[in-house]
Structures are given as structure tokens and as C-alpha cells.
């Protein structure tokens, strides 16, 4: 009985030490946040850094308030988020579709192999000017940029995952007389599901790059436009504000996809 109590006590101590560690980690995380923004503010106020270039948190905050109140921030944000969401969803979907076509025809996959390598090594944003001339300076060409940066790497990653599915699963299906379509639907695609979801996560980041660069080039609206406009009129408070908003929303989007991953994978494999 006495031993039981002792174990209970040790367990309590262990839990307390875990909790304490967690509190310390959180404390330092918040400390870095405060020191960074307070340091920035103080340095800017005292002109240790050029306030014209580096602005200050209070100025960025003030501009944020103005832009939220007159609603103009939401217009730009809405465009950019819509473009990014379409970009990474379509990029992932299209990449998976291309991977399926490559899996379907090994000969086609052999033929296209060097072209995929070239397309993958090429910086896709360099295609921006051509896209904009071809499709017009509008949302379509920006979404295309978001798709372009993610589609080839998705194709390659997902196709590799298709090829690495344990052949014995296919053997089981073949003994039941499965067609190639059934092999794909029952084994290849579901087995690669975790890879596709994790590609989605990478593509969120890639699509932000494509969309922001697209908005730089098109220069009519969106957070990318805010940056390029702020740069041209030398209003770096505006530039920094868009950076902060991009950081926040890119994180939110990434977390949402991570959440989606958790839900889907849980249903799929346990």
C-alpha cells in the first residue's frame, strides 16, 4: 500500500515536471515575440534604424487599423487568399492527375521523364511575364502562377509514391482478376493518400510564392500589389504591413491543411 502511494507521488512529480517544462518553452516563445517587437519599436523611435525604411510596429499597427476600418485591407486580402487557395488546390489536383496518367502508361512516363526533370529544375516564376501576356493581367494568370509552381513537383512526388506501393497488394487484387483501373482505385490511390495530403501542405507555401510574384507583375490588387506599390512610393510601412498579414494568413492556411491531414489520416489508417 505504501509502495503504491510512492509510485503515485513519483508520477505526480513527473507530470509536474512535464508541465513546468511546457510553461518555460511557452515563456521563452512569448519573450522572443515581445523583445523583437519592443526592440523594433524602441530602435525606430530612437532612430537607431532608419524609420523610413524599417518603419515601426506602432506605425504598422496604425496603418492596419486604418485599412481595417476603411475595409481596403479585406479587398486585397480576399483576392490573394482566393488566388492562393485555388492555386494550391488545383496544383495538387492537377499534379495527382498527371501522376495517375504517368502510372497508367509506363511508356509515356519514360518518354516524359527528361522533360519533367527540366520543368522541375526551371524556376517557374520566370514564366510569369509570358503568362500575363498570354492570359491577360487578371486573376486567371495569377492563379496559373500558383498552379505552375506546385504542379510539377506534385506530379513527381505523387508518381514516386504510386510506384512505391507494395506490389503484393497489387498481387492480391490481381488474383481476384482486378483491372488496371481497379488496381488504381483500390490500392494505388488510397495507399498514396498520406503523400498527397503532405504534398498539399508543401503546396500551400509554394502557391503563396507563385501568387505574390504574380501580383507583383500584374500590379492591380492583392497583398503582392501592396508590397510593390509600397516599394514604388517608398511607403515601407505598407510593405511591412503586407508582410505581417501574409505571415499570419500563410500560417493559418498551413495549420488548416495540417488539421485536414490529421482528420483524413485518422479515418484512413486506424
Amino acid at each position: 500500500m505504501k509502495q503504491n502511494n510512492e509510485i503515485e507521488l513519483l508520477h505526480q512529480q513527473y507530470i509536474t515536471s512535464l508541465r513546468r517544462e511546457k510553461i518555460w518553452v511557452r515563456f521563452y516563445q512569448i519573450l522572443i515575440f515581445i523583445v523583437f517587437f519592443a526592440g523594433w519599436e524602441v530602435a525606430s523611435q530612437n532612430k537607431w534604424i532608419d524609420p523610413l525604411i524599417f518603419s515601426s510596429p506602432s506605425k504598422v499597427g496604425g496603418l492596419l487599423k486604418d485599412k481595417v476600418l476603411d475595409g481596403s485591407l479585406f479587398v486585397d486580402l480576399g483576392y490573394t487568399v482566393t488566388e492562393t487557395v485555388f492555386g494550391f488546390l488545383l496544383g495538387t489536383l492537377l499534379g495527382t492527375l498527371l501522376a495517375a496518367i504517368l502510372w497508367w502508361s509506363p511508356r509515356l512516363s519514360n518518354i516524359l521523364d527528361p522533360y519533367l526533370v527540366i520543368l522541375n529544375s526551371m524556376p517557374k516564376v520566370a514564366l510569369g511575364p509570358i503568362l500575363i501576356v498570354a492570359l491577360g493581367p487578371n486573376m486567371t494568370s495569377i492563379i496559373m502562377m500558383g498552379i505552375l509552381v506546385s504542379v510539377i513537383i506534385t506530379t513527381i512526388t505523387v508518381y514516386t509514391s504510386f510506384k512505391n506501393v507494395d506490389p503484393n497488394y497489387l498481387k492480391v487484387l490481381k488474383t481476384f482478376g482486378a483491372t488496371r483501373y481497379q488496381l488504381f482505385k483500390e490500392a494505388i490511390l488510397p495507399a498514396s493518400f498520406p503523400t498527397i495530403i503532405s504534398t498539399l501542405k508543401v503546396n500551400v507555401g509554394l502557391s503563396w510564392v507563385g501568387v505574390i510574384v504574380g501580383e507583383f507583375l500584374v500590379s492591380t490588387r492583392g497583398l503582392g500589389y501592396m508590397i510593390i506599390y509600397g516599394f514604388q512610393v517608398f511607403n515601407f510601412t505598407l510593405v511591412l504591413l503586407s508582410l505581417v498579414v501574409i505571415a499570419i494568413f500563410a500560417t493559418i492556411m498551413y495549420q488548416l491543411v495540417a488539421l485536414l491531414e490529421k482528420i483524413l489520416i485518422k479515418n484512413g489508417s486506424t
Binding site: 492480391v172 487484387l173 481476384f176 483500390e186 488510397p190 493518400f193
Partner: peptide
């Protein structure tokens, strides 16, 4: 489907329930 084949390991599909697994051959 006249010949059944059992492999060294079970190769049950981990994303399918037991019910879906045992009905797989009939479904295919």
C-alpha cells in the same frame, strides 16, 4: 476467380475495415 491465393503476410488493406477487406474479392 477460380483460384484463391494467400501470401506470406496477410496483406490486408490497412485503410479498409475488416468487412471491406473480406468482401474485396467479390467487389473486384
Amino acid at each position: 476467380n477460380q483460384i484463391g491465393y494467400m501470401l506470406q503476410q496477410d496483406y490486408l488493406f490497412p485503410w479498409k475495415s475488416i468487412k471491406e477487406n473480406i468482401l474485396l474479392g467479390l467487389k473486384i
